Simulated assay, not measured.
Amino acid sequence: MKLGVIDIGTNSMRLLIADIVENNLINRKKYVNTTRIGQGVDKNGYITLEAMDRNINALKEYREKCIECKCEKIYCLGTSAIRDSKNKEEFLKRAKEEANIDVEVIEGSKEAELGFLGVINGINKKDDILVLDIGGGSTEFIFGNVDGIKKSKSVNIGALRLTEKFLASGYTDEAFLKMNRFINDQIKEIISDLKKENINCICG
Rank of each mutant, 00 (worst) to 15 (best):
F91P: 02
I120R: 13
K88F: 11
L77S: 03
E107V: 10
R181N: 14
V131T: 09
K70L: 09
E104Q: 12
E189P: 00
T172W: 07
K196G: 15
I187R: 11
C201Q: 00
Q186W: 01
D193R: 04
F182V: 08
T10P: 03
K151W: 02
D42F: 09
F176Y: 15
E90D: 08
R161A: 01
Y171V: 09
G118T: 09
K178P: 04
C71D: 01
R54G: 10
N23Y: 06
I149D: 11
K165N: 10
I37W: 03
K165M: 14
A81N: 04
K188S: 14
G45T: 04
K195V: 01
T139G: 07
D127I: 11
S192K: 12
R36G: 07
A51T: 07
T163R: 05
G204S: 00
M52L: 14
A81W: 03
C69H: 11
E90P: 00
V41Y: 08
E107F: 05
E104C: 01
V5D: 04
E104T: 12
S85H: 03
I157V: 15
S152H: 05
L3P: 01
G115Y: 13
M13E: 10
K126H: 15
G38H: 03
K65E: 14
D7I: 02
G148Q: 06
C203T: 02
N180P: 03
K93W: 07
I20L: 12
A51L: 08
I129Y: 09
G135L: 06
L177M: 14
I187E: 06
E89W: 00
G158D: 04
L162V: 11
K151P: 00
A81M: 05
V21I: 14
E64R: 13
I37T: 06
K30F: 14
G9D: 08
A58G: 06
C203L: 11
L160V: 14
S169T: 13
K60G: 07
L162F: 00
T48L: 10
D128I: 03
I56C: 07
F166C: 04
S12Y: 01
I183N: 02
E98P: 10
D7Y: 07
K70Y: 10
S138T: 10
G115P: 08
M179E: 13
T35A: 14
I120V: 15
F166W: 06
I142G: 08
K43I: 14
D193K: 09
E174N: 13
G170W: 07
A112S: 15
C203N: 13
G9P: 00
I67S: 09
G40T: 00
L117C: 12
Q39L: 13
Y31R: 04
F143C: 03
G40N: 07
C76K: 00
